[in-house]
Nucleic acid binder design. Sequence first.
DNA 1: TATGAATGAGCATTCATTCAT
DNA 2: GATGAATGAATGCTCATTCAT
Lengths: 221, 221, 221, 221
Amino acid sequence: MTDGDRGPDVAVTDAPSPKGAPTTARGVRTRAALVAAARTVFERDGFLASRLTDITAEASCSTGTFYTYFVSKEEIFLAVMEAAKDEMLHPGVPHVEASDDPVSVIEASNRGYFEAYARNAKLMMLQEQVATIDADFRQRRLERGEAFARRNAKAISRMQDDGLVDAALDPIMTSRALSGMVGRLAYSSFALGMQWSVDDLVETSTRLWANALGLRYRDDA
Amino acid sequence: MTDGDRGPDVAVTDAPSPKGAPTTARGVRTRAALVAAARTVFERDGFLASRLTDITAEASCSTGTFYTYFVSKEEIFLAVMEAAKDEMLHPGVPHVEASDDPVSVIEASNRGYFEAYARNAKLMMLQEQVATIDADFRQRRLERGEAFARRNAKAISRMQDDGLVDAALDPIMTSRALSGMVGRLAYSSFALGMQWSVDDLVETSTRLWANALGLRYRDDA
Amino acid sequence: MTDGDRGPDVAVTDAPSPKGAPTTARGVRTRAALVAAARTVFERDGFLASRLTDITAEASCSTGTFYTYFVSKEEIFLAVMEAAKDEMLHPGVPHVEASDDPVSVIEASNRGYFEAYARNAKLMMLQEQVATIDADFRQRRLERGEAFARRNAKAISRMQDDGLVDAALDPIMTSRALSGMVGRLAYSSFALGMQWSVDDLVETSTRLWANALGLRYRDDA
Amino acid sequence: MTDGDRGPDVAVTDAPSPKGAPTTARGVRTRAALVAAARTVFERDGFLASRLTDITAEASCSTGTFYTYFVSKEEIFLAVMEAAKDEMLHPGVPHVEASDDPVSVIEASNRGYFEAYARNAKLMMLQEQVATIDADFRQRRLERGEAFARRNAKAISRMQDDGLVDAALDPIMTSRALSGMVGRLAYSSFALGMQWSVDDLVETSTRLWANALGLRYRDDA
DNA sequence: TATGAATGAGCATTCATTCAT
DNA sequence: GATGAATGAATGCTCATTCAT
């Protein structure tokens, strides 16, 4: 399901390759070709069904070359994710911080998330698949989600102090729950094929989020 | 991730075995032993890592016998789920129906769900794994979730008509979102190892759910 | 060289196969075919150059069948040695025990050893090769040699007590040294291709052994 | 064990590199670095397990550079042995020549051998390993042993003529047998880990040698 | 029904060797 | 001379599936 427990907002590993980065320009090119090929193959066949030889064939290089840059399928998968990181963050997801209207911030955040998700739906499904298969990957994702959840929890806490948010809610669990809700919605929509528009997703999820926190929703009188 | 989008409440396949049920008493016993062994092995090693020979070994029968009752690993997995269905529904999750207090109903439902989840966490993780691997299983789960979501959506709709729930919410998407939220929470807690108590989970999720819908939360004056 | 440090006399492992022995008659036949094939292939190509597929081809079975009975090339090698054990002991190597004439006993023992060696020269060379490659095998051989050396040392000790043997010699080191001498001679002769007759080998080694211990050599007046 | 049949005394190949010696100073340095690295890696991992890339990595040079100086792993191994030749001979092993006391000469020779062996045990084991693997190397060693054995046999012959040594012994086989005995003892002690002191080894092997030949042992009245 | 031996396609992985820069 | 990326043949090993007994 989406990334870890994050829901809106994305952050991906930056673990360095165990096999040192290529020195020469040619090496850089080859490695990049492999990563690109891997993304293509993974998205087409899924992580499990993808064979290393499919990837090297797609990258037009020999089997051995794969092992010049990567140790395993898991590892090149991480590299694919790493390469997609910027792409997935691009939409500019503002963190929930001081601002005129908290609901607008949440809405913008959600919109950014859904749009990024739509653009990278295949990759997001892949993440889900790998997370259920690979405990390391799952752990890594969990930790990234942790960081994000804490940031969000802090924002919720602040709004509770300001009397804007239901004081009875546990900030961290609430953060997890609402992120999870949005993440799950995106997954259902783009990965499972539920046919919802981004606008509707944004509208409903933002309203639910705002209601849940006890924020006054923008358009309501 | 729970199954599909269900969140609270569980429903499992009832697809009949392609290999007709065993006729003799011995056959019934052998088949049952295989299903029990499969559950043990799947929970221990995960679906992917489990080999058919592990299952037959655990069931103390020969490799060939497996094929007397099942066509594939996928099929025996379905049988495991089928066998666990009752067990997982047991805690008595009342559907959201007419009653004095909607929030109490939601709370009871959530509690039932979290408790069932806790008891069957390994199996729930397995479901997640298989869903990301097997398109058929994913589809099946989606459909079951669909039915459940529609029932829930109907209840929400009714409450909107009665002026109890925020009328601006799309019932079906809301149903999905809130179920997803609870499902995700359970997954984080029992599968990923977040250390939350069932009471806290019930409390927070129920409050968020009630707030999100616009219901007045029980204890609040 | 030769086996462990034994020199005359042979004793081979009786470690049971980690993969349980076959249950059916067919299984027993197949396993035996594999062991026989392995001996043929090992003797023909050497341990290192032998590929598992060469062995299964020679045994007329599929690759997978190999793994029904053995875990690795090392393991089937042990089985080959085990199967050859009787064959190699056959010549009746009497232990050095009380008897009329110690020198005759030594001579008979040496003759038995050289004859067995000649019959199984290829296998003996294989043992050498594997011992330099595989630490486990080396250790195993060392331990078997240890037991044999102690037996021999005891006999030497007894003869020292009886005033038959040079009392200044350390029994255990002497046992090792003389066994090693004979083993090395056999290796040079049959494995390295030194062209010596068994009679000459027996004559010289026995005389050296007797002289070294300080025994009076039979034929000398 | 030990090298060929040599026992005491050591002599190593002086085959010239097929790839002509380096011309530039840098070349000389690189080649030397490779040989040193090879020794380190061979001693650490054994000949078989050592990969060319391990050696170049240890020598801090590129893979390609290896082929500037060597044709194969076998070839660099010979170079390592060549480089170690002096080191292994160093202890000054006097050949068995005219002298006051034959036993003293044998003793000095044995001591020199055991001490050299102890210093270069890893290399000696390597030699064993390679000899069982590489027929060329085995042959080369055999020939060197041959030369040494003949020298020794001549000395034995002379002593037989002088009535100092048992005339019934075949000089060449005796030479091989006794050298083999000492070589095997050294191997057991330093390569297999038998815990014997050099003094004890020298004492016992010299006494056995002297007895075997029929020489009167120094200390005996 | 039950058995368990036999099958073999399928895939990952290694590493000596080459060669363009 | 030195570099290190690229190569790809060679091989080990797994495991779902079949089938004779």
